[in-house]
Amino acid sequence: MTEKIRNWSKRNSDIAALPFILIAVIVIMTAATSGKFLSKGNLSALSSQLPELGLLSLAMMVVIITNGINLSIISSANLVSVLMAIFMTRTITAETSTGMIWLIVLAAILLGIIISIILGAINGGLIAYIGLPPMLATLGTMLLYEGITLTITKGFVISGMPDIFVEYSYAKILGVPLPLLTMILALIVVGIILERRPFGKYLYLIGSSETVTRFSAIDTKKTIVKAYVMSGILAGIAGMVMLSRFNSANARSGSSLQLLTILISVLGGTDPNGGFGKVLGLTMSLLILQFITSGLNLLGVTQFITLALWGILLIAVIAYRRFTEHKHSS
C-alpha cells in the first residue's frame, strides 16, 4: 500500500503535495475561526458555492490542456442563463399548468445546452479554422457574448424563475445537494473522458504539439472545436446552476471568478503552457481555494484582499513549479 502511494506521488509530483495542503487548510481555518469553519451553516454555504466554481474551472482546464484558454466562460454562462431566464419567464404565465411548466423547464435546459454548444463552437471555430490565438479569440467573444447579453437585458436583472427550477438548488439526494451532485458528476465524466477516451488523450497531445498530432492523422481542428464546445457546455451548466441559485440572471454576474478558475487549474497541476493537467488535481485545488475563501470570509477579510491574494498565489504557484522543474532538469 505505501509502495503504491509512493509510486503515485512520484508519477504525480505536481499534485502530490495537494492532499497535505488541503488538510492543513482545513486545520488552520478551523483553528483560526475557533470551529466556526466546520459548523453546519458554513459547510452548507460552502457546498452551495462550490458547484459553479467547479464547473467553470473544469471549463477552463479542458482548454488550457490544449495550450489554449477560454476567457469567455463567464460571459457564456451569463448569456446562457439570461436566454434561459427570458425563455422561461416569457412562456410561463400564472395559468400555465404544472405539467406544462415541467416541459418548459426541460425545454429551457435543452435550449441552454444548444446555446452553449453554439457559443463553444464559435470559439473553437475562430481558433482552429480562422487561426486566431485562443486568448484573443476568446477575448473577442467574451466582449461579444457579454455585449449581446447587455443588449438583450438592457442592463437589467431578469428574475422570477419557476419554482421547480429554483428548487433544484435546494433539493437533495441522500443529503447531497443536487448542484453539488451535478458538479461531482461533471468531474467524473470529464475525468473519464480525459483519461480514457481517445478524444481526451488527443487534447493533451495537441497541447504539447498540434503539428505532430496533425501529422499523426488526427483531425486536430475538429478536436480543438470539440474541446471548446465541451468548455462551453460546462460553462453553460454553471450558468444554469447560478440561475437556479440566484433565481435571477444578468450580464455581469460572476466576473471576478475568471482569475479564480485559472488559478484553480494551475494550482491543480495544469500546465499553463498546455499538455498536462488532471481532474483529480483540479478537484483538490478547488477544495483548497474554496476553503481558503470561505475561511477568510469568516475571518472578515475583505473580498479585495482575497482577490489580491489569489493573484499572488497564482504567481507563487507558477514560480514554485518553475523552480522545482529547474531542480529536476539540472
Partner: peptide, 27 residues
C-alpha cells in the same frame, strides 16, 4: 521581469498582476 523569469504565458501573469493591483487599490 516575472514573465521572463517564470516563463509563463504573459496573459496569465498579467491577469494575476491586474487582480493584485486592483485588489490592493480597492482595499
Amino acid at each position: 521581469f516575472m514573465i521572463h523569469k517564470l516563463n509563463a504565458p504573459p496573459l496569465i501573469i498579467t491577469i494575476a498582476v491586474q487582480n493584485i493591483l486592483f485588489g490592493v487599490l480597492q482595499f
